[in-house]
Design a binder for these strands. Structure first.
Lengths: 203, 203
DNA sequence: GATGAGGGATGACAAATGTCATCGAGGGGC
DNA sequence: GCCCCTCGATGACATTTGTCATCCCTCATC
């Protein structure tokens, strides 16, 4: 009996190509393709899928939240995360959300089908290099509000803009940014944003 | 006689999946897969390819430069650019570099093979929405140095950092950033960076 | 030969940013 | 109860930015 697979990735070309690639495997059957995470849980239930392959970066519901939704709606369905960016924070958060596997998009294509099979068997699949990095990197040092403010700062607005969007006073925003800069080691607001993004501490 | 195709994309999973997808077409033969743009021209010559499919964002030699190299080394080989980001500036620059087609990664997968065929026939393939945007967006208003300085600023360093890396005085850096902010309409250095990136004016 | 645009620089000034000390309220832990 | 941390805020202060006027040099172009 073949593995019933749901694929969610916002890039149609990639999604279609992955479906084609995996559909070639005799023991894998692609039962649904989604362009965002919103309908993932529903699709898994509807098609009684065995494995859900989710991209982390998606419009609407992001992959991590989608993973949690899938796990809740169908505990027997395993989740395999696929992502462009090997950010340590993503891995940790994905695992906490109930994912069984985590691969980056520059792993060889032939390993993908194997990853799907292992996940289906209940094994965990994690890129070894990324796992190591994730251990050393540790959790986000940012408090919730610091993260929010830093994210609000990530599109380059002024302190006044951020204060308005976060409903905070300007001074408070500056304090949070200062704390975030100190914790990330960035010497500029923009540098702090970059560091936090690279580590997967935002989203 | 089948179309001989070279694929270059830095994400191995995507590259493999695209190769698998296109390899299914009876009239297309994938003769080489590359992980960066450096060897693209050589691979095209070696395998006497008819079409080269290049990603814009690649480590080492970027897709636009690779396209120019391919066109120079093998004028009979057509170039089809594939990119994650539909940035107007990319399209214009790719066309100037001699590309015949330009598709974004969220076009439907089945159109891809068709795009390869059209490019091979000497037709041009361009995402219509993107083409329209590209016309309205216009060329980069930034002068060469302004672009360089803005790019140096894009990782969030201070003026002093940028001045050092660009071998300029701090005052000059501030002048260029000021000009870049005025031309892009950004109110902050960071905002100017984001706007320029979104339009494909950096790289 | 004049004009203009771009590259590079300086200096001055106003506004924004980053830092610090401090304060109060609330929420767990011991 | 008390301590510690986070959240939220304020005010003061030193730096850093962003803006502007002005200068010089070079290279096209008219």
């Amino acid at each position: 009996m073949s593995i019933r697979l749901v694929i969610a990735d916002d890039q149609a070309l990639v999604r279609g190509a992955l479906a084609a690639l995996l559909g070639l495997e005799p023991d894998i059957e692609v039962v649904a393709e989604l362009g965002d995470g919103t309908g993932a849980a529903a699709a898994v239930v509807e098609h009684s899928a065995d494995v859900a392959m989710l991209d982390v970066e998606m419009p609407g519901l992001d992959g991590i939240s989608a993973a949690a939704a899938v796990r809740q709606a169908a505990p027997s369905c395993r989740v395999l995360m696929v992502t462009t960016f090997g950010r340590p924070g993503y891995l940790k958060r994905a695992m906490q959300a109930g994912a069984s596997g985590f691969v980056v998009k520059d792993t060889p294509a032939r390993q993908l089908a194997e990853a799907v099979r292992r996940v289906h068997q209940g094994l965990r699949v994690v890129d070894p290099a990324l796992a190591a990095e994730s251990l050393t990197a540790g959790d986000s040092p940012l408090t919730e509000r610091e993260g929010e403010v830093l994210k609000a700062a990530s599109d380059g607005g002024t302190v006044a803009d951020i204060a308005k969007s976060a409903m905070l006073s300007e001074g408070t925003v500056r304090n949070y940014l200062s704390a975030a800069m100190s914790k990330t080691g960035g010497r500029t607001r923009a540098e702090a944003v970059r560091i936090a993004e690279d580590n997967g501490w935002l989203l």
